[in-house]
Design a protein around this nucleic acid. Structure first.
Length: 289
DNA sequence: TTGCAGGGGTCAA
DNA sequence: TTGACCCCTGCA
């Protein structure tokens, strides 16, 4: 990978497989928004950047070389060779179509606390509303960041939430999920759940650790592990994936465990990546079988 | 205008 | 295994 750094901008060259829309709108993250020119502006790690893909270059605006090396490089999963994942040796038309449709999806390496709270908010909820709730959460508790004359807000550090009550959370209108947010915060602050250990734990251990938190079931845990815990084998089963997997590979009443077991055998160590292609393809095309 | 179903699930009984 | 759950949106 070759890159250039100038005028607070990073230009990464020779990239053929990155698509901002598919990456930022495939449902793995909630704080990126499309600009009229097709680029995406988002907040992560307390910084606001704008990401654009042109020809074979990724252009990150408002990032220093330090920021890039220390954060964005890993966050955007720049180094991974996605062609290997895409060339799964299967005669599987639906999967091939899904992978082709979602070309250029990168699975981001997000902050685990942000990811956890975001996916707790995502339960029984729709993406536009999830984004709205996460945004007002950040507006309430995060720090202001200015970019191109506009004010953005960082995702709050957990220390800022130490004394937060249910009443404080009312304005974000998360409903019954507010209780879960508070449980997550207190579990982490008093050490019952150790987020910093997740990356080093095995996948089953890490999942069990996260599920100690109220409001974190198997689906939310798998999302957190896949999108911020470095567990590419995590296979989140939501209504879309359940429908798709049941109809394509199993049978109508297939249970979640059955689906996960099958996915692990069929897709292997990158099961979660294929989950994302299947989810995005089914949802975007409203394929309900 | 009002009413109702359902949404990238999870909890508790 | 099942109903309830906060709140919003889309659609009759």
């Amino acid at each position: 990978m070759e890159y250039l750094s100038k005028d607070n901008k990073i230009v990464i060259k020779g990239i053929c497989d990155f698509n901002p829309r598919h990456t930022f709108d495939c449902g793995q993250c909630f704080r990126w928004n499309e600009e009229p020119d097709g680029s995406y502006t988002g907040v992560a790690n307390g910084k606001v950047v704008n990401v654009r893909f042109l020809d074979d270059e990724i252009i990150i605006d408002n990032a220093s070389e330090e920021d890039f090396k220390n954060f964005w490089h890993n966050y955007l999963d720049i180094e991974r060779d996605y062609s290997k994942i895409k060339s799964l040796d299967k005669e599987d038309k639906f999967l091939k179509d899904a992978i082709e449709f979602g070309w250029g999806i990168h699975i981001l390496n997000q902050d685990i606390f942000e990811c956890l709270i975001s996916f707790i908010i995502s339960t029984q909820n729709q993406i536009p509303r999830i984004k709205k709730i996460v945004e007002s959460f950040c507006t309430l508790f995060g720090d202001e960041i200015e970019y191109k004359g506009k004010i953005y807000h960082s995702f709050p550090d957990i220390t800022k939430l130490k004394n937060v009550t249910l009443k404080d959370l009312e304005p974000i209108k998360a409903g019954y999920r507010s209780d879960y947010i508070l449980d997550a915060v207190s579990c982490i602050l008093d050490g019952r759940v150790d987020l910093s250990s997740i990356k080093n734990l095995s996948y089953p251990m890490a999942k069990a650790e996260l599920m100690k938190i109220k409001g974190v079931g198997p689906k939310v845990a798998d999302c957190v592990l896949l999108f911020s815990g470095g567990k590419s084998e995590a296979f989140p089963v939501d209504v879309w994936v359940k429908r798709t997997m049941s109809n394509l590979y199993l049978n109508d009443g297939a249970k979640e465990k059955e689906i996960i077991d099958f996915a692990s055998k069929y897709f292997g160590e990158y099961a979660g990546f294929y989950q994302q292609y299947l989810f995005y393809y089914s949802r975007e095309n409203n394929i309900k079988f």
